[in-house]
Every structure is written in C-alpha cells, then in structure tokens.
Design a protein around this nucleic acid. Structure first.
Lengths: 220, 220
DNA sequence: TAGATTGTTAATCGATTAACAATC
DNA sequence: TAGATTGTTAATCGATTAACAATC
C-alpha cells in the first residue's frame, strides 16, 4: 500500500473561514439596497462574529477594503461568490424520498443559492415514478447512470442510517465528490471526497446538555 | 449599565467535547449487542475521531475505564446519557409548518432520542387546525400560552428568514432557552438562551467551495 | 509474564481577538 | 485636519494528537 501525504494547496483557506464566507455573502445580499459600502463592523453585526474576524477572513481573500471607508459592497459580493465557486450552478441528487428527502427537494433556498435538485432516488418501488415538485423519484438501480447523465456533482443523503454508508460509496464511485449527509451516521469516504453531516438528533442532544447544566454563573 | 462577567461553571465541558458526546453515545448503542466492553479505538473508529480524542473527552467525565480492557459499555452509555441530560424527555415546539417544519415534526430520530414534538405553529390560517402525525397546527397567537401550558423547553424555528428573529424573541420571552434554527439567518438572543443553527444552503455552499478549489495536492 | 489499553502530559496546531499603525 | 476604518501583528485561547508511563 503506497503511502500518500496530503498537503493543503497554496491558496486554500482555513476551514473556519470557509464556513463563514457564506454568512458574509448572505449579509451583503440582505443589506439595504442603497448601501454601496460596508464596514467590517457592519458585516460582523449581521453575521454574528467579531469585526476583527471579518477583516482577517477577508484579508485571506485579499479583499480590497478602503481605510476609513470600508469595503465596496458589490465588489465584495462578487469576490465572495467567486471564492466560494458560486459563479456556476451545481446539480444535486437526493437519495431518500421520505419526508425529509422530499422537504429538501422542494427547499427554495437551494435554488436561490444556485443548487438545482435534478434527481431523487428511493429504494421503495411504490415511490418510484412519483413527482416531487417536478422532480421524478427514480429507482436506486438508476443511481450511477443518472448521476453521470445528469452531471450531478453534489449528493444529499436522506436515508435511514443503515443505508447511508452504502449510498455514499455508490455516489463516490459514480464521481460525486461532495456529500451532505442527513442520516444519523458517520460516513467514511476516500480522500478526495468531502462529507458534511447535518445531524438532527445530535443538535437537540447538544441543546439538552445546555439545558441540564447550570451552564453559566453570573458574577460581579 | 452594570458590568456582568460570565464564567464557565466548574464542571462544564469544552464545546467541542459536548458536540462529540452524542456521537459516542450513538456508537455505543449501535455496537454489537453482545459487546460488553469497548476501547477508545473502537469508539474512535465508529465516531470518526482520533482515539486520543476519545480518551481525553471521556476523561473530562471521569469515565472509569480499565487499563488493558477498555470501558464498560453500559456504564459508559449511562454516563453519557446522564452527562448530556438525556435521562429525561424534552418537549419541543416547532414554528413553521411548511415542508421542512412538517418533515421535522414526523422525524423519527427525535422521539428515539427522547425529544417529543408537542406543538407546531404556523402563521397561515389555512394550515391552523391541520394534523401532522397527530400534532395539531396551532395559530401563532397561541405560541406563548401553549409553550407554557405544554412545558416546552426546546424550540425549532422552520420559518422564512424574515420571521426568524421575531419568533426567537417570542420563544425566549416565553421561557424557551434552547433553539434550533433552520431559517437562513443569524439570531441574536439574550445570554442565557442557546441557539444552534442548521444552515442548509450554507452547507451546500461550503461543499461548493471544495468542488471549485483544486483542494488537495497528492505528493510523494 | 506479555499484551492491551487507559489516563495524562506536553507539544503542536488552528482559531480568535485586542490593539494599533497606516491611511483614506 | 479629524474621524473612521482597514490590514496586520502578536497575544491568547481552545482543540487536537503523539507519546508513554501506569496498570489491568
């Protein structure tokens, strides 16, 4: 087995910064229509982070701010879109046409951000052929074929936990390198693929921890 | 304005540790029924983290492991449940009975983890009175009353972004100190309340970044 | 005893933030 | 000029992990 070392490529950003860029982008879009300029303080307030954080994040992108003035809003919006790779649309397949999978299929925020759901799969033959907002439910057998035909680059897993790893393996084998996993399971994928997990029950469990702990002591 | 300093209470855990405890708990549950013992390596494999990480996390809980043997599975499971505050059930209200809100209402993982959806609200009068899996859709006007009557301790926001802050304010005012926010917005709440954000479009945007960047260089 | 695994330390790494000179 | 705000440094903080003595 050949040893392979993975190095972060020059030009890639800290993970924490990448995760904040979409917040900055959204903040810029939501800002008053007539604002042409915005400061790190403005962005920090809207994105809920520290102003120094904003400036540091933007400095990684070499965003051209003007001292005493701030950043040009539309310049910054374009820069963020370019940096995140949002200058093109992405074609997305969802696996699992249960309640969650169907809700995600019709979620308007995806299309607004440039993500188009082009396929929806389910193992249940009774669901195959159904239409979910103009998206046809396809058989799991067609997964590889459809992913390739439809040029899918992102997969969303909304199956039961037990099926998730197998689905991930098939998606990656078919060339899908980005997966958003809603199944309550930790997936293992090969090095070039990326998985992000949205773990619904875990989120509530973390909130439960805070409810059960005294948590904060107010002093002084 | 009186200065108030907030100190983490003795006994509270690092945030990163808290976020992993549910993964360990799930791993323990999913393990082969006949396993009575498990090592940090076993847990690390299932939870997708480093074994040293597992041991360090468990050391915060003073989990009694046995050198050369590992941790007792049911002891550890109980300890994690106790630490996370999962020895009791939590009553949850969902605000927003759109596709996402309804999918969350019937999501089986919540009840399995001890979270019961006891109320569902929507601003649309046409939806009020509907049943979603035996949960009645209530009017927004009844929010405060129902939260108190039903002893709701966790709120889930599944409204459009524009409505989210107002809903959060009302939930907190009614005594809900934990909020899971699915609206694409950063919420501001007062100090004692906790918000976790599940930001669906942002997740895809982060994945898009990785697709658009060369990302990794394989060397050696 | 030999092998396995914990518990903990210390090193390292990455992320955050206060502070302030630069400069519009 | 005076006020505002960036860009960057340096300090700090929190999280991760390798390593290994302790010990079952």
């Amino acid at each position: 087995m050949r040893a392979t070392t993975l190095n972060l490529m020059k030009g890639s950003l800290p993970a924490a910064t990448v995760a904040r860029l979409p917040l900055y982008l959204r903040s810029l879009i939501e800002m008053d229509a007539d604002r042409t300029t915005c400061s790190s303080d403005d962005l920090a307030l809207l994105a809920g982070v520290n102003p120094a954080q904003v400036r540091k994040d933007l400095s990684y992108l070499a965003a051209p701010g003007v001292r005493g003035v701030g950043y040009n809003r539309s310049m910054l919006r374009n820069l963020l879109r370019r940096e995140l790779g949002l200058t093109r649309c992405y074609r997305v397949a969802i696996v699992g046409a249960g309640n969650l999978g169907r809700a995600l299929t019709v979620y308007p925020g995806f299309l607004e951000s440039g993500f188009e759901i082009v396929a929806l799969f389910d193992i249940d033959g009774m669901k195959v052929g159904d239409l979910v907002n103009s998206v046809l439910v396809s058989s799991m057998e067609d997964l590889e074929q459809t992913v390739r035909d439809q040029n899918v680059s992102i997969g969303i897993i909304a199956t039961p936990a037990a099926a998730a790893q197998g689905v991930a393996d098939r998606l990656v084998a078919a060339g899908v390198l980005s997966i958003l996993n809603f199944a309550p399971a930790v997936l293992k994928v090969c090095g070039e693929a990326h998985v992000r997990r949205v773990d619904l029950s875990t989120e509530l469990q973390i909130l439960a921890y805070h409810l059960s702990v005294g948590d904060y002591v107010h002093s002084e």
